[in-house]
Amino acid sequence: MDTENDTGTKASPYWTGWIVSLGFILGFVTLCMGLTFPVHALFLLLTGWTSQAMQLVNEGSASLPELVSSLLLIAVIAVLLHFALRVLFRRYTKQSEDMSKTWGWQRRWSLSLVVILALLVVSGICVLGISHQTWQLATSDEPLLFKSGFTAARRSASKNNLKQIGLAFHNYHDAFDRLPVGGDFNRIGEPQHSWVTHLLPYLDQGSLYNQIDFSQPWKAEVNRSPFETRVYVMENLGVIHRFENGKRRAENQKGYQPSHYAANNQILNVNTGMKLRDIKDGASDTILAGEVSTGIKAWGDPTNFRNPQLGINASPNGFGGPYQWGAHFLLVDGSVRFISDDIDPQILKALATPNGGETVGEY
């Protein structure tokens, strides 16, 4: 028996070491894959209640006299509890026939009891906080699963979309020696077709482009079918997950399909498309297009352009991403940058204008 016990004792640390090592390896691989949601979930569940506690502390306005009075009240309650328990204990020991000697109720027992009660109160607050945090995570608009690793994947997909759009712009420019117009309007000001429509052949959508009757406006009945077709490169997965919880509802499958990206109206506007050589401020310092998450228009809408100077995530008619702190933008040189929404307005103005002559600093 002693041998078996010794063997079990020696084996326990061995298997514990293997389990801990395996846990570290799996955690490292998970983090490398960008799937940080298990650690994120555990962290939020264990610490999420602290925000509520801090909020209660900040909302409280207890003065020093009130704090002293509260401590004195707790001390009085503790003393009364001690004497009450002392009397009850003495009565119990007198009635007990098995006890040959009686002891008085000790002060340390009362103190221990008070500490235990305080810990129970604090534990109750923690349990309520964790329950609240769990409910908030379970019922939030965006599932916890998509708040970490998959959020990075969707942001990467959006950047890739913008890079494809940038390549299409440059291929169009190579073919026509200018960028497409922001929107075609006829002589009487009626909207015809958008910059996205002109880029379709360079977005691997040649067959869709050939279905469009350019002699008719984009909303003409003859053009309804092609403009109700999804162009996936114009859809930002982050916007879909933010507003539809990752699912395209049946009613959104019908009608004119959206574009989650808009052009810079300083470069593409009504019947206006610039040449790259006319952008004097530099292709790497000028915005060409960017993410939008409000006021979303159809990809066939000839008015799908905006002014970056309205700010980022600051106006329903401006640019903005589906995530916090900023949005992705396509620059004229084809690169994609994430620009914070707290960028200096003067720098944002310099990035928006193609020939403003402003100096673009760090951003």
Rank of each mutant, 00 (worst) to 15 (best):
G300L: 02
H40G: 15
E358V: 05
S148Q: 14
A84M: 08
R230A: 12
L80V: 08
P316V: 12
L46A: 06
E221L: 12
F169V: 03
A298V: 10
V121E: 13
T36P: 12
P13W: 01
Q95R: 13
F24H: 04
N317S: 08
L348M: 06
L276H: 06
F243G: 04
L331A: 00
D184R: 09
L310F: 15
E358R: 02
V20Y: 05
F28Y: 15
G8W: 14
L203I: 08
V115R: 08
T272P: 07
F305R: 02
V332E: 00
K275Y: 13
L72R: 13
L26N: 04
W105V: 02
G17W: 06
A157G: 14
H82K: 07
R242S: 13
T303P: 05
R107L: 14
H241Y: 12
L26K: 11
I343D: 01
L113V: 14
V122R: 15
Y323G: 10
G182M: 01
T359Y: 04
K163F: 08
L200R: 06
A352K: 01
N236R: 03
S315W: 03
L72K: 02
A168H: 07
I188H: 05
L351V: 02
N58A: 12
A152F: 13
D6R: 10
V68T: 13
A53C: 02
G321Q: 00
S340L: 10
V233G: 00
A84T: 14
I19G: 12
D281L: 03
E291F: 07
V239E: 02
W109I: 03
L200S: 11
D285Q: 12
S293T: 12
L45S: 01
R230P: 14
K275W: 11
A78T: 07
S284L: 04
